[in-house]
Nucleic acid binder design. Structure first.
Lengths: 204, 204
DNA sequence: GTCTATAGACGGATAGAC
DNA sequence: GTCTATCCGTCTATAGAC
């Protein structure tokens, strides 16, 4: 057997990705130096470039890793009994991430980078597409149960639900004193009025 | 009399701001070089730094200029007869800006920069605050005319109306083939359901 | 002669990659 | 730690308006 321990390799890789994410969130992609990442991860420059071919790869790794996490969340939600409640829960959880300033900054940085890096934009679009698809499934199933206004298509609804989560992220970035629970309540109100039937079968 | 012609100075300054905006939209703030801006504006480095003390000032100028424009829009809307229609019109106009990819990119770049430049963040927050204030005025007046659900406060509503515009911008950045008129129609639907009284006095 | 506007070269610093 | 490349912003010099 070679001296390569896959688990150890993965762990070290994760350490670097974490350190890099912290740096990118704090200073942005361009202004983060590879030396910064070395310092944050406690490793040498030589070691860093053994795990990643260049700075850009460290950045993209953050978002490929995150996509897997979101996919898991959506999968769990799809198994719930009440798909409408599951939808609200997923939105609340995703919107709740704005409590972490680093997440907000990484999203903004990703959006800015995607605007001028086609390959990276493709990755971000894939992630967003997967999110919208997952949300559309929840909407469609809730609609089958009569919990959604038939006048709204699942795809259009999913797109704007994702948009509302994005809006929450931008609001959080603009207002450091954002009252998260209050905003989530308004977000919930918007979702209910936007999506639920005008005369709901139950009183939610 | 000094040899300063204010009109000529302002015109050249505007030329530089335009050129810089194009560069920043295309390459981002960090990756845009002052040489890029010189090339785009057709001037020399010496001339460029005669008009602006540094690169950052060229960036901020874009957004101070834009704030004045938005303020004018809001002022005009406040004079309209039907404040509800005026609100919808302003939102449609602002959301319609996403038809220009450069605008979308500049907004994203501004958001990313604001995350790590406190002084610039202050400027962006001021602009956003002014927008929200202007929208709140429209909402409040529409409410006085009985056109808004009394259960929604003007401030909270204005915040989320601004948020919906932001959402449109982010959607546009993710989807280059966005069907703008269709999305604007959905946006309108969300606004109506979110804000209008459950039993509206007229049939809008 | 004083001020504005412009040009263009260059210094010092710093980055990524290995 | 090195090597190469690049960038910002300063600095000097020149032209013209008053």
């Amino acid at each position: 057997m070679r001296t390569v321990d896959p688990a150890k390799h993965a762990a070290k890789r994760a350490t670097i990705v974490d350190a890099a994410a912290g740096c990118f969130a704090e200073k942005g992609f361009e202004r983060t130096t590879t030396a910064d990442i070395c310092r944050a991860a406690g490793i040498s420059s030589g070691s860093l470039f053994h795990y990643f071919p260049n700075k850009r790869a460290m950045f993209t790794a953050i978002f490929t890793d995150d996509a897997a996490e979101t996919a898991g969340r959506l999968e769990t939600a799809a198994k719930a009994d009440d798909q409408w409640e599951a939808l609200l829960d997923v939105v609340t959880e995703l919107a709740g991430q704005v409590a972490h300033p680093a997440v907000v900054r990484l999203v903004l940085e990703a959006a800015a980078q995607a605007a001028r890096d086609d390959e990276f934009a493709e990755l971000i679009r894939r992630n967003d597409g997967a999110l919208r698809d997952g949300l559309a499934v929840l909407v469609e199933r809730a609609a089958d149960a009569g919990l959604i206004d038939p006048g709204v298509t699942a795809r259009a609804a999913a797109g704007w639900v994702a948009g509302l989560i994005d809006a929450m992220i931008l609001r959080a970035s603009l207002d450091p004193d954002l009252d998260l629970p209050a905003e989530q309540a308004v977000l919930r109100t918007i979702l209910v009025r936007f999506l639920r039937p005008v005369s709901p079968p139950d009183g939610a």
